[in-house]
Design a protein around this nucleic acid. Sequence first.
DNA 1: CTTGTTTAAATGTATAGACAACTATATATC
DNA 2: GATATATAGTTGTCTATACATTTAAACAAG
Lengths: 240, 240
Amino acid sequence: MIDKNSPLPIYYQLEQEIREQIQNGILKQGELLPSERMYTEKYNISRMTVRQAINNLAQEGLLVRMKGKGTFIAEQKIQHTLKGITSFSEEMEQKGKIPSSKIISLESVQANSQLAAKLHIEENSEVYQLKRIRMADNVPIAFEIAYIPKYLVGELRENDFTTSFYQYVEKNLQLPITHGDQEIESALANEEDQKYLKVTEGAPILLIRRLTYVNDQQPIEYVRTAYHGEKYKYKLTLPR
Amino acid sequence: MIDKNSPLPIYYQLEQEIREQIQNGILKQGELLPSERMYTEKYNISRMTVRQAINNLAQEGLLVRMKGKGTFIAEQKIQHTLKGITSFSEEMEQKGKIPSSKIISLESVQANSQLAAKLHIEENSEVYQLKRIRMADNVPIAFEIAYIPKYLVGELRENDFTTSFYQYVEKNLQLPITHGDQEIESALANEEDQKYLKVTEGAPILLIRRLTYVNDQQPIEYVRTAYHGEKYKYKLTLPR
DNA sequence: CTTGTTTAAATGTATAGACAACTATATATC
DNA sequence: GATATATAGTTGTCTATACATTTAAACAAG
C-alpha cells in the first residue's frame, strides 16, 4: 500500500489510504482509527510521518483526535447546505420546494464605471442585464438582477436561463466556476423590490450581492438578489 | 518572548508572537518572514517546533509558504473574514476598526423549551444570559444576546467576557470549538434593538443566530445578534 | 544574448527517540 | 463498597539530524 520509492511523499500516500478506507467503509464513522504506533510498525515508517498524515486529515475534519484516547473517524457533518455555491434551484429542492423562476427582462446594456470595475471589464462595454423573479411553490421569494459580460458568453437567449445558468457556463462555454464572493446585508425594499416581491413599503429584505468567478480570477456574473425578509433565511455552517 | 517554562507549548507561543507582529505591523503584508533557521537560532528551539508554528499559521492563511523561497506574510485575504468562525474582535481588527463591547447584563436564567432544545440541555436548567453591545470605533454596530449552559462553563464573571470568550473556552475550559451553525435573515429592529443600536422604528437589521459547538456535537453558546443594517455587511467567499 | 553549471539558502520530507499529559482499566487499600 | 494507586496505551510536544527539492543569483560557455 505504501511505496517508499514513490515520488509521492509517504505521509501523502498514507493520507490517501486512510481516505479510501473511510470512503469504502473499511473504516466506519465514529470508530477508532488504528493508533499511530500501529501504522508506524505496519509500514515501518516514523511516528512523525504518521502524525503528519493524520494531522492533515484531522484538519480537514475527516478525523477527530482525542488526547489519551485515540483518533476517531469523524461523523459525517450536516454542513451540506452552504459549503459551496448552490444555485437557487438546488437550494429550494433541498428544502422540498418546487423552484421556478420568471424572467422579467433580458437586455443588453452598457456597464457603468462601478459595474465595469467589479466585472473587470472596460467601462461602457456591453453586458447582459437579466431580471428575474425566483419562486418556491409559486410564491415569490427573491427578485434578482444579474449582469454578465457579453464578450465572455457570446449571444444569449432567454432559453439559456430556463435551466441552470451555471451548468450552461461549465458545459457549453467550458468555463469552470471556481468561487463566489458574497456580501450580505439588511435593507429596506426599494420600489422595484416591492413590486416584484409583493411587499409593502418599509419591508425588510435580505440583500445578497454575489460576484461569481470562473478560472479563479475572471468574474462572469454580478448578481444583486433581494430576498423576501419573512420568507427566506440564509443558513450556513462555519468550520473550525 | 518565548518562555520555555511556560505551560503553553513553545510552538503556540511562537504562533502568538508572529500573529502579534503581523497585527502590529512589525511584519508587513507581502514581506518575507524570517527563515526557519533564524527562529531556531534566535530562541534556541528546534526547527520542527518552528515549523509547527509556521505551518499552523499557513493553514490559517496568515502566512504563505513557498518552497525554496521562504515564507511570506499573506496579503489580506478577502475570504479570510468568513472562512471560519471569527469573533467580533477579530473581524473588526481585520478591518482596521477598534473593537469594544459593553456588557449590558449578565444573569443566570432558566432555559425555556426552545432554548433547551437548541442547546441540548434539560428544560429549566440554568443558563447564563449575556447582553452586550458591540462597537467599532465606539459606534454601536450590533446588539447581542448570548445563552450559555451553566454546567459547561461553571461560574462565570463579567471579566471572562472582556477578552475573547472563545479563547477562554478553549484555553481555560479545554473545550475545542469546532464549528458554528448560522442563520441569517433580515428583519426590523425590535424595541430592545432600537434602544441599544440607536435606530428608529422600522429600521432594518441583519439578524444572525448562531449555535456554536465544541467537540463537534456539544452546543456551548446560542447567540442572537442584531447588526445595524446600514453599518454592517456580512462578507463571505463560497468555494467551488 | 542565450544557455548551462555551480552554489547557497530556503522549505519539504523523513527518521529515531524522549518525555509529558491524558484516559481507561486493573489493583490494592481502607 | 468506596477510594487511592499503579499501569498500560494513547496522543501531544520537542529535540537533533539527515537528505531531497526548489529557488535565485553568480558565473561560465557557447
